Computed example of a mutant assay.
Amino acid sequence: MGDRAYGHVPVLAGRVTALLMPALTASAPGGRPPVLVDATLGRAGHARALLAACPGLVLIGIDADATAIEAGRELAADYPGQVRLAHTSYDQIAAVAADAGYRRVQGVLFDLGVSSPQLDDASRGFSYAQDAPLDMRMDQSRARTAADVVNGYPVSELARVLAEYGEERFARRIAEAVARERAREPVTTTLRLSAIVKDAIPAAARRTGGNPAKRTFQALRIEVNDELGALRRALPAALDLLSPGGRFVALAYHSLEDRLVKRELTARTADPAPPGLPVRAGDMLAGTRPSGTAQAGPLFRLLTRGAERPDDEEVAANPRSASARLRAAERIRPA
Rank of each mutant, 00 (worst) to 15 (best):
V11Q: 06
V11R: 12
A13L: 04
M21C: 00
T25F: 00
R32A: 15
P33Q: 09
P33K: 09
L36A: 06
L41T: 02
G45H: 07
A49I: 03
L51E: 04
L51H: 10
L57D: 02
E70Y: 01
R84F: 03
H87S: 13
S89Q: 14
D91F: 06
A94S: 14
A95F: 01
A95H: 13
A100I: 03
G107T: 14
V108Y: 08
F110W: 06
Q118S: 10
S123P: 00
L134R: 13
D139Y: 13
Q140E: 14
R144T: 15
E157Q: 15
E157V: 10
L158N: 11
A159S: 14
A159I: 06
R160T: 12
F170R: 06
R173M: 10
S194K: 07
I196L: 00
A200Q: 05
R215M: 11
I222T: 08
A230V: 13
R232W: 00
A234Y: 02
P236I: 03
A238T: 11
P244F: 03
G246T: 05
R247V: 11
S255Q: 05
K262N: 07
L265H: 13
T266I: 00
R268C: 05
A270Y: 00
A273C: 15
P278S: 08
M284S: 03
L285C: 01
A286P: 03
G287W: 09
S291T: 12
P298N: 01
T304P: 04
G306C: 04
E308I: 02
D311L: 06
E313C: 00
E314S: 05
E314D: 12
S323F: 02
A324L: 08
R327T: 07
R327C: 05
R327Y: 04
A329I: 07
R331H: 08
R331Y: 03
R333S: 08
